[in-house]
Structures are given as C-alpha cells and as structure tokens.
Amino acid sequence: MKMINFKDAKIPAIGMGTWHMGSDRAAYAQQKATLQYGIEHGATVIDTAEQYGDGDSERLVGDVIKDFDRSQLFVISKFYPFHAERKQMQRALDASLKRLGTDYLDLYLYHWPGSTPLAEVVANMEAMQQSGKVKHWGVSNFDLSDMQDLWSVPGGQHVMANEDLYNIGSRGIDFDLLPWQREHNVPLIAYAPVDEADGRGANLTKQRALVEVAKRHAVTPFQIMLAWAIRDGQTLAIPQTSSEQHMQENIAAGDIELTTDDLQLLDQAFPKPTRHQSLDII
C-alpha cells in the first residue's frame, strides 16, 4: 500500500474508519475480526471518536488493538466541541484512553468548531500534547475560513491534519480548502471516501466513467473511488467497513496507480467545483 508523510509520521494512505461500529452486539465479532484483518494486512491507521456509539467504537478499537504492537499503530480519536475547555478536555481524553486501553493517542482531533475561543482550544490541545498523552493534534469538519482562523492563533500552525468529508461525488473542498491545505502542508483525512452515507456511493459506482476506469484496472468502482481520494499523496482515506472482503479490497486500492487518462475521464464525469461550496458534512 502507498505510504504518505503525515508531518513527521509515515503512515499508509488508507486506514480504517469506525463510525457506527461497536454498539451492535450481534455484529461485534465480525466487526472486530474485520479490524484485526485490516491491521494484519497493513491498514494500521484507525479513526474513532468519543461520539461514535457514545464510546462503543473506542471500546471496540481497544479490544482490537490490545493484541497488536501499539508502536506500529496510528490511533486517531476526537473530542466533542463542548469538551474543549481545559478540564473537560483532560477528562474526555482520559476517558478515551481508558476505553482504547492505551496511554496515548497518535492524533487527537477537535471534532467540529464550537463556541470555545479557538486560541483557548489550541492552547488546551497543545497542553495535552505536552503531557505526552497526545502525540499530535488536529481538527475535523473545518472549512477554509476555519483553517485560516486556526492559522492566525498562537500554536495554530502546529495542526497536524484536518478531517473532512471528501470523495469523487463530493469535492467541494477542491475549490479552495484543499489547495490551501496543500500550500500550508496540512494533510487531509478524507472521511466517507467512497460516499458511504445513505448508499449514495452505490449509485456513484454505476456512473460510466467509474465503471470504465475500474475495468481498465480490473478492480471495482469502489476501489477506483478510494484510489482517486488518495491520488495527491497527501491524503489519508478512512473508509468504514465490517466486511473482510471489502477490507481486502480497500487495502488493495492503495496500490492502484491512476493514469493521466483515468484522471481526465473522471474529472470530466465528476468536475471540480468552480466556486466555493459549503462544507459537506454527514
């Protein structure tokens, strides 16, 4: 699988999302096995949040990673905006670490912009980093204006990454946010990279251009969507699946090299935005 540089970390370009995982006891064993399979086959980045299942996803991740060398994993979690004040953030972080069964996070994300002054949020995240419980901090669901505001506060330029919805059918951030992040060396974490919401991705995969490019590479349209999401070498995609077969396909997508002709065809079918669009969120 392709590896990408995430500031001072080198990680695989395709990791594993865990939204909607961990709460369904009937599906728990399969979900655990799928995440274990992913780690065993190179998808060593795991993205979760205290919000997901009110901590259930973190508990599932903790159950999975206890059997692996923690130093070889890159674990991401997120905190609610209403936990952005210092004491609340410390409690939220400690609770996440307990559920995950680890003494540090590789990346801790401010889940979406809230009412706490941004300078205070940054200062608190910097304090969590200095404590050793967080190696890096970042943000999620930040648009261009949010990132510009972040850049202007003390310590804001220490942000490791921004996690936003991004896929071939939802490329609003291609107009201004993504170019800004590339210019400022802020990697993107793409959630819903195959448009998992409400089955929309399944409709996208029927589009002629995706079908054609998939045939060229003898892969599925979903795999082309993933390969497209990470095409710039500065994006981490975190698809979510509870299927080992789909996990295998996700990992294999990390080795697909899209050609110039492929990209041109896909751009024609799914054109870049020509103006600023509101940030797409699910």
Rank of each mutant, 00 (worst) to 15 (best):
R91L: 12
A43R: 03
A192R: 00
G201D: 01
T48I: 11
L188V: 13
I46R: 07
P81T: 05
A192T: 12
K32I: 04
Q248W: 03
Q248C: 13
L165I: 05
Y37E: 10
A119D: 14
L266C: 12
P179R: 04
S77K: 06
L35M: 13
E212G: 02
R91Q: 14
V211A: 14
S71K: 14
G101Q: 00
A123C: 01
S23D: 11
A190V: 07
V121P: 00
P187V: 01
D143S: 15
Q51D: 13
Q240C: 09
Q129L: 10
D164V: 15
E183K: 14
P12N: 05
I230Y: 01
V122Y: 02
L178G: 03
K206F: 02
M125V: 11
A214R: 02
I11P: 09
D146M: 08
S57E: 01
A192I: 03
A197S: 08
S170I: 03
P113T: 05
E163A: 12
I281L: 05
Q223P: 03
K7Q: 14
A27S: 10
I230F: 02
T116Y: 00
E212Q: 15
T18Q: 04
A192E: 05
H217P: 01
I65S: 10
N162G: 03
A127D: 15
W228E: 07
L150Q: 07
L165E: 15
E163P: 01
K98H: 08
H111I: 10
F74V: 02
V186Q: 06
S152V: 05
V213Q: 00
F222Y: 12
G17M: 04
Q157I: 10
N162R: 09
L266E: 10
V121C: 02
K7S: 10
A197H: 08
